[in-house]
Design a protein around this nucleic acid. Structure first.
Ligand code: MN
Ligand code: MN
Ligand code: ZN
Ligand code: ZN
Lengths: 140, 140
DNA sequence: AACTACTTTATAATTATTCTAAAGTATGTG
DNA sequence: CACATACTTTAGAATAATTATAAAGTAGTT
């Protein structure tokens, strides 16, 4: 059985608030996702492969998808897309911006970009958020 | 056999410059895509369904995918993604911005958004383009 | 007409994702 | 602690979007 320490608290709470019991598999996934300093951008396949690589008893694909989906529905992960019909997830759930550099994704803090001019929302609508993608290429 | 008129010229040229012979099927697809005043945003499935609806002899799925792919590779279409692992295409190939409103996509001309502050590219990289997505929701 | 290169199409394969149903684990109750 | 019940994990099937294959069709050339 697992003893909960204060370090684990945050990511176990994320599971609980997603309606998920903190089982072994889920705790390991949540820890892997949230127990890091920097934002993590990933696909479910990438997550599965990197976690299962070091494990003798693999966590099943369905558990990865289910857990990620529940965390996303509860607002602990944000979904986004690149141009390759795969879902990416972002542990930074605040509204922020990105550099896209050949499949690599880098966060840009919200306050690093400000606008001089922005269009109004069409009538009956309002703006939920404004997010910028800066696509990069190699110099020269 | 088809006689080419000046109206057809543009979209037939797009086929030619994509390395595609202007066959009947391709001409109809290219015409459907480019012979309109406003930008068209679509998925291949949507394109196929709306074009085949009015046809007795259907154009095959592979031809839709192949033609769209060639047009995109030649730069006559731009690919983008919403949060649902399907590729969308945009007949507006200029760098521009979008409203995303519940799966609906609306163009925002480039000059409608200007920046006060933008981050620099990481070293060794330069900025290829900057595109904004404004997500909308219903009022009240 | 015969030759060649390019096209279209039906169908199979692939990839990402979701579903299903059976077996496993935890929790509550007496 | 038994047992019931509820939730979980998992392997494998199913689905959706896309890509590949290979046979039959079409066009351009000699
Ligand atoms: Mn998919
Ligand atoms: Mn896909
Ligand atoms: Zn991010
Ligand atoms: Zn557009």
């Amino acid at each position: 059985m697992h003893k909960m320490n204060s370090k684990n608290k945050t990511f176990i709470d994320k599971l609980r608030s997603s309606g998920l019991r903190p089982t072994n598999q889920r705790v390991e996934i949540s820890k892997f996702l949230f127990n890091r300093k920097k934002t993590f951008h990933f696909t479910v396949e990438e997550l599965k492969n990197s976690m299962n690589l070091k494990r003798s008893k693999k966590i099943s694909t369905a558990t990865f998808y289910n857990t990620v989906h529940a965390l996303k529905s509860a607002g602990h992960l944000k979904e986004f897309s690149l141009e390759n019909n795969t879902s990416y997830y972002d542990t930074n759930i605040t509204s922020h911006h990105h550099f896209f550099d050949n499949g690599k994704v880098i966060d840009i803090k919200s306050d690093k970009i400000t606008f001089q001019k922005l269009p109004e929302a069409p009538k009956g609508k309002k703006i939920k958020n404004v997010e910028v993608v800066i696509r990069l290429e190699n110099n020269n």
